[in-house]
């Protein structure tokens, strides 16, 4: 930009003012967004980072620049266990949401022929979102409980002799709730990219003698990558940052990073919570950075 201004200014001096005003209006156009991001994104993060170096007593926090919070965090094996657990939840949830999300999107995009039905079925997918996240999650509890619907149904069918304990308050129930809550975040972007795949490419693949699976694997999946990647970022960011699902569905028995932060906050240990949040943020950014290595979303979109 500056280069072009410099060269144009040298060659055609009369155009200088025109360029300058274009430049100014560019800045002006970008400033509302920049301002919003600065106030609501950059400033809070800067504040969190600053507080993460502060000190805390039992009921106050005081400004300082010390590494105590990080030292404690990084030297405790609980931190590593909790981070591994969080990553485990994210990975397993990702696999399931991807499989289900891809299948649903594929069905909607390629099997449902009429646009009306596609829209109708797509809206059907969003109906659960009319109720709150928490309600959808908590409604699993009576269903999966020891005397819940699932167990009494299985008992009456004679499939099991005694109630399955692992249905509720276990990693199973946590991941089930995650998959239930977040699959739509996978369906939407994948469906979106699939709808934009040129149908003639699939016909071409069929004409060239590709089987259904070959078409799927060599044509559709590569072309759907940007959607998969966006869905992946959604799901991973949501699962990594969650605390309430893990608390309710594990009966407070499992921990993830979000719960660690929540515990610190409730005990007024804001600096330690901030330090944990910074480490979590770095982890998630790193993961997204790696993901973006595989697909250049900007180019693909």
């Amino acid at each position: 930009m500056t280069d072009s201004i410099a060269t144009s200014a040298a060659t055609v001096p009369s155009q200088e003012s025109k360029h300058r005003s274009a430049n100014t209006s560019g800045w002006l156009l970008a400033s509302p967004l920049a301002l919003v991001l600065a106030v609501f994104l950059v400033a809070p993060i800067v504040m969190i980072i600053a507080v993460s170096f502060w000190g805390a007593t039992e009921w106050t926090i005081y400004p300082a620049f010390q590494f105590d919070n990080y030292e404690f965090l990084l030297s405790s094996d609980v931190t590593y266990r909790v981070f591994v657990n969080t990553l485990k939840y994210a990975a397993i949830t990702w696999v399931f949401t991807l499989l289900i999300g891809f299948t649903v999107a594929y069905f909607l995009a390629f099997h449902v022929r009429s646009l009306t039905w596609q829209i109708a079925l797509f809206l059907l997918c969003t109906i659960p979102f009319w109720t709150s996240n928490i309600i959808r999650m908590i409604s699993w509890i009576p269903f999966l409980g020891r005397n819940g619907l699932a167990n009494s149904a299985l008992l009456s069918w004679g499939v099991i002799d005694e109630p399955l304990e692992w249905l509720l308050f276990s990693d199973f129930s946590v991941i089930l709730a995650f998959v239930h809550l977040y699959t739509l975040f996978m369906v939407v972007p994948i469906f979106n990219t699939m709808m934009r795949i040129d149908k003639s490419l699939i016909e071409a693949a069929a004409d060239a003698g590709a089987s259904g699976w070959q078409t799927l694997w060599h044509v559709i999946v590569p072309l759907t990558k940007p959607g998969i990647m966006i869905g992946t970022i959604f799901v991973i960011a949501l699962v990594m940052g969650d605390f309430i699902t893990v608390r309710f569905m594990s009966g407070s028995q499992s921990a993830n990073v979000g719960r660690m932060i929540q515990n610190d906050i409730s005990l007024l240990q804001y600096p330690s919570a901030a330090a944990t949040a910074v480490v979590l943020l770095c982890t998630v950014l790193l993961m997204i950075g790696i993901l973006l290595r595989f697909v250049d979303i900007r180019k693909e979109l």
Binding site: E58, F72, R81, Q253, S254, A255, N263
Partner: peptide
Amino acid sequence: ENQYMVRKWNEFVAA
């Protein structure tokens, strides 16, 4: 030893 206890409690929950 309240602060120490709280940290240990968090470990118990994560265990």
